[in-house]
């Protein structure tokens, strides 16, 4: 197990190094360079020169990368001239809200998708499975903003139950719960459709496997079969999938935040994209990537914890 963890950690580090090189590369592929991008096309030659020296942009690329990586490691991701704030402090402000939004919606998605997938797998090819599969396929085929709008129409326009924007997030707890309800639901439904599809097929595979046949031959009832012999085995493979979907979940949050005006990193990123605020763009990309890599790592460790074949190697 220790060997596995160490190897897996090493992989995560390698991945992060490559990502940082790619992101750094993009930074320097900008037309006109980073300085122009920050100062705008009308900046004077002198101002450009000053900033170039100040940022160390006249040094060799390798050195620049070293400096940038060193700074990034210390949490210094540059300065947003457009927002007049350091990227680090911006992220410090927006990131926690995202963890809340994404975290809560993921928890709900897992809590719904796993029993749903097991149920569908158990009832495979019956009417209820077909109906659920069809609904999930529709959710799965829907752009997340469309799903969000549907929710707004139902819960706001028609019934007036919930607010349609999350702009005023950050009030009382009661207010925040109301405000977050629709974004969380929108994000969650999309993920449920994805996870449950996978959980269903993992369950079907397991139900058809030899070891479940052995359990049936022992006289196990369906409840025992699912709880003792299917759940754990299907869960371990679904675990990895959940880790792998993190990039998609985070991408979905970008859309949902834009739709609901939720002041999270996605919204920050979107505004930065429209304003061509590159330090913010790159900082956010780096942070969401770290989040993904860490998420993958956790998922793989969870997989190892659930599956003795990996754990006891």
């Amino acid at each position: 197990m220790i060997g596995y963890v160490v190897r897996r950690l090493g992989q995560a580090v390698v991945v992060m190094v490559i990502v940082s090189i790619v992101v750094f590369g993009i930074l320097h592929l900008l037309p006109g360079g980073l300085v122009r991008a920050q100062l705008g096309p009308r900046a004077t030659a002198l101002a450009v020169h000053d900033l170039t020296v100040q940022e160390g942009l006249n040094k060799p690329l390798v050195v620049q990368y070293g400096i940038w990586a060193w700074h990034a490691l210390q949490g210094n991701l540059g300065f947003s001239y457009k927002l007049n704030q350091s990227v680090g402090s911006l992220l410090g402000e927006y990131l926690p809200r995202d963890l809340l939004l994404v975290g809560v919606s993921m928890l709900f998605a897992i809590a719904i998708a796993i029993p749903l997938g097991i149920w569908q797998g158990y009832r495979r090819n019956r009417v209820d499975d077909h109906v659920l599969s069809a609904v999930m396929l529709i959710f799965y085929s829907m752009p997340s903003f469309l799903l969000g709008v549907l929710l707004i129409v139902v819960f706001n326009l028609w019934t007036g139950l919930l607010p349609s924007t999350a702009t005023n997030f950050g009030g009382s707890v009661g207010n925040d719960v109301q405000v977050l309800a629709l974004p969380v639901l929108a994000l969650c439904l999309g993920n449920v459709s994805y996870f449950s599809r996978y959980m269903r097929s993992a369950t079907v595979d397991n139900l058809l496997s030899d070891h479940v046949r052995t359990a049936v031959a022992k006289g196990a009832a369906p409840r025992r079969l699912l709880a003792r012999h299917v759940l754990r085995n299907s869960l371990s493979s679904t675990m990895t999938l959940i880790g792998l979907t993190l990039p998609y979940v985070l991408s979905g949050s970008l859309i949902i935040e834009a739709l609901f005006n939720f002041p999270g990193m996605g919204l920050l990123f979107w505004n930065a994209a429209q304003a061509r605020d590159f330090p913010v763009l790159l900082g956010v990309v780096l942070v969401v990537t770290v989040a993904t890599v860490v998420g993958n790592l956790l998922a793989d460790l969870g997989y190892a914890a659930l599956d003795p074949r990996v754990r006891l190697k």
């Binding site: 993009i26 859309i255 994209a273 990309v285």
Partner: peptide, 18 residues
């Protein structure tokens, strides 16, 4: 692996902004 761990929409928006 590395590129796959960058959430795709962020990557696309970044490129589209450039």
């Amino acid at each position: 692996d590395a590129l796959l761990s960058i959430p795709y929409l962020f990557f696309v928006v970044l490129l589209a902004a450039i």
